[in-house]
C-alpha cells in the first residue's frame, strides 16, 4: 500500500514529457496509473521518476477520419471510448472497454496505459492486434509507426522503449469483429481472451493470456473448424496458475476463438 520514494514531474506538452523521460534515468510515464500505481504499492516496480501525462491534451483526442479510421490518443480513458460517438464507428472498441474492470478504473485507466503495460491478461492488446491497429510512437528525434502485431514484444514490454511515448493508436474502419473471454467473475481479470476480425483481408484471430504477447492466428478462412484447428495447431504453451492449468487455457483458447469468430461473422453485414 505504501509506495517507494519517487520523484514526480507534470509536463505540459509531449515535447516536455519526452525531455523529462530522456533527462532522468529510470523515468516512467504515468498515464491513468491503474496498473502502475498498484505495482508500485506492491513495490514490485520502483521507477525513480514518474512523468505524469495528465496535462497532455494532445494525447486525449478521439478522431474519426474520412476513411473510417478511428484514432485514439494514448491518454483517452476507457470511459472516453465508451462515450465517444467517433469511437463507435468501430463498435467493438467501446464494447470491450465496457468490460474492463469497473467504473472507477474505466474513468482513470487509459488506452495507452493498457497496451503499454502489456499485462498478458489485458483486453486491448489482442483486440488491437486483431483490428490491425497502428501505434504511433514519438521520441525526441521524431515519430514512427508500428503495426500492433509488432508493438507487443514481451511481458510488460512494448516497442515504445525508454525515452519514448506512445501517442496515438489508429484503428482502420470495420465492424466484423468479435471478442470472447473467460474472466474471474463477471467483467473480471481475463483467464483467456480472444479477439477476432474479418475486416483486415484474411480472418485474424488473436489469443490473449496464453503467452507473453498476443498470439496471432490467420486460419485462412473463417470456418469454425478451421479456426479451432488453427488454435490447436498453434502449439500454445500457456502458463498454469491458480485460476487455470495450461491445459484448461489451451482448451479455452479454442472454444473462445470459435465464439469470437462467430460473433465477427454475425456482424459482417
Amino acid at each position: 500500500m505504501l509506495l517507494p520514494e519517487v520523484e514526480y514531474a507534470r509536463p505540459s506538452s509531449v515535447q516536455e514529457a519526452l525531455g523529462l523521460l530522456s533527462e532522468y534515468e529510470g523515468a516512467r510515464p504515468l498515464a491513468g496509473g491503474q496498473t502502475l500505481v498498484n505495482v508500485m504499492k506492491a513495490r514490485a516496480a520502483a521507477p525513480d521518476v514518474l512523468v505524469d501525462l495528465q496535462d497532455l491534451d494532445e494525447l486525449k483526442g478521439i478522431d474519426l477520419g474520412a476513411d473510417g479510421t478511428v484514432t485514439l490518443g494514448a491518454m483517452v480513458t476507457y470511459s472516453d471510448v465508451i462515450g465517444s460517438a467517433e469511437a463507435r464507428a468501430r463498435p467493438i472498441l467501446g464494447e470491450v472497454c465496457a468490460q474492463i474492470a469497473d467504473v472507477q478504473v474505466r474513468n482513470r485507466g487509459t488506452v495507452g496505459g493498457n497496451i503499454c503495460s502489456n499485462d498478458p491478461t489485458n483486453h486491448l492488446p489482442p483486440l488491437l492486434v486483431a483490428l490491425g491497429a497502428t501505434m504511433t510512437i514519438r521520441a525526441a528525434g521524431g515519430e514512427r509507426t508500428v503495426p500492433a502485431e509488432q508493438f507487443f514484444v514481451g511481458v510488460y514490454q512494448t516497442a515504445a522503449g525508454p525515452g519514448e511515448l506512445l501517442t496515438t493508436i489508429s484503428i482502420p474502419a470495420g465492424k466484423a469483429d468479435g471478442f470472447a473471454a473467460v474472466t474471474i467473475g463477471k467483467d473480471g481479470t481475463c483467464i483467456v481472451n480472444v479477439a477476432a476480425s474479418l475486416d483486415g483481408g484474411s480472418p485474424c484471430v488473436v489469443v490473449g493470456c496464453v503467452d507473453a504477447v498476443p498470439i496471432v492466428l490467420r486460419p485462412g478462412t473463417d470456418d469454425e473448424d478451421a479456426v479451432r484447428s488453427a488454435v490447436r495447431g498453434a502449439n500454445l504453451q500457456p502458463p498454469s496458475d491458480v485460476h487455470a492449468s495450461a491445459d484448461y487455457r489451451r482448451h479455452l483458447a479454442e472454444v473462445l476463438a470459435a465464439r469470437a469468430i462467430r460473433q465477427a461473422q454475425g456482424r459482417r453485414n
Binding site: G185, K186, T189, D241, H243
Partner: peptide
C-alpha cells in the same frame, strides 16, 4: 499463498 490479495482472491461483486 497463491491468492494473497483481492486481485487473485475473487470476492463476489454486485454483478456476480
Amino acid at each position: 499463498l497463491l491468492t494473497p490479495n483481492f486481485y487473485d482472491y475473487h470476492v463476489p461483486h454486485a454483478l456476480d
